[in-house]
């Protein structure tokens, strides 16, 4: 049996965990290719027109997998802990995929994570193992190995961010959901452009410190969504160490529409730029905006504006 993993949404957050779990159980899996125009076109065909770009990409990946594997892995994640809610897209994702592809022969496999209804991560994975015909102990062991892998990876990523923060140069904090920032079709071009402009882009999605949850209170007291809380916390935590902030969001992301506006209104220093990704081809517009943003930061740093 081959399990298909769509390369979208929380894959970018739980890649190590999911792969590690299936590896430890000896199950073959197929990951859909990196996002490209073809996948986005597939997504556009099936998604509701005004759905967010990330969900269109996700549906594209699911569709790519349908014929190539036996089961598609679409977990349902409703909350991370009691106060760790996520955008309603994630609790609905399982049923959304089922209903969108009702005409096609698609079989889904999932685990459910919903702390409000006492469905924690570990029991979820044990149930998933059961669906795959593995014993309780085996799946629990696989989960623990995979979780350890995820933790190690998070520590390594955190170290990298800390190293980058100590470097000399123009440091730009790029914030946004991991599935937008690290998607090769959506966010990665921004990082490449920033590197070309001789700056050090730092991804906020790679920061996993516990402090950032507390730090987010400096900007806003009660952000309901855990991903946004982490991003805002990262901004508050590193505010003094960086030279500019770029907010990347996919059109029309629900939580971001509120949080980004709040960040734009409450953070005055360093400068903030909001980039909205809408899946259009061509990057010239984005390049121009990034260039002028970096120029402004450079001029400001060199005291150019004081001279005039």
């Amino acid at each position: 049996m081959v399990i298909g993993i769509p390369r979208g949404f929380l894959y970018y957050k739980h890649e190590t965990l999911w792969k590690g779990f299936f590896d430890a159980l000896g199950i073959t899996y197929l990951i859909s290719p990196k996002t490209n125009q073809e996948i986005l076109d597939r997504g556009n065909e099936f998604a509701i027109d005004e759905a967010c770009l990330s969900s269109k990409v996700y549906l594209g990946h699911v569709h790519w997998l349908i014929e190539k594997c036996d089961k598609v892995f679409v977990p349902r994640i409703s909350s991370y802990g009691m106060d760790g809610e996520v955008c309603t897209k994630f609790p609905a994702l399982f049923d959304l995929v089922t209903n969108t592809f009702a005409d096609q022969e698609i079989e889904l496999i999932h685990y459910n994570m919903d702390f409000r209804n006492a469905d924690a991560e570990a029991p979820g994975f044990v149930k998933l193992g059961k669906l795959l015909g593995k014993s309780r102990t085996k799946s629990l062991r696989a989960y623990l190995i995979a979780k350890q892998g995820e933790k190690t990876q998070q520590i390594l990523e955190g170290n990298k961010v800390r190293e980058a923060m100590e470097q000399n140069g123009l440091k730009i904090l790029v914030t946004g959901h991991a599935y937008n920032l690290h998607d090769p079709y959506l966010g990665t071009p921004v990082f490449e452009m920033l590197k070309k402009l001789d700056t050090i882009p730092i991804s906020a999605a790679r920061v996993h410190d516990k402090e950032i949850h507390r730090a987010s209170h400096q900007i806003s007291q009660n952000i309901p969504w855990v991903f946004n809380r982490e991003l805002v916390g990262t901004i508050a935590h590193y505010q003094r160490k960086i030279d500019g902030i770029i907010l990347i969001t996919a059109f029309p992301c629900g939580p971001d529409s509120l949080i980004n506006e709040l960040v734009l209104r409450r953070i005055k220093n360093p400068p903030v730029l909001q980039l909205i990704l809408d899946g259009q081809e061509g990057t010239a517009g984005m390049e121009t905006r990034l260039e002028s943003f970096i120029d402004i930061i450079r001029f400001k740093k060199e005291g150019y504006y004081d001279k005039i």
Binding site: E50, N99, P252, G254
Partner: peptide
Amino acid sequence: FGCTPEMDAMPVLQN
């Protein structure tokens, strides 16, 4: 426009 929960319910309604 952009109401995520209702948008997620739309494929169900289509079915």
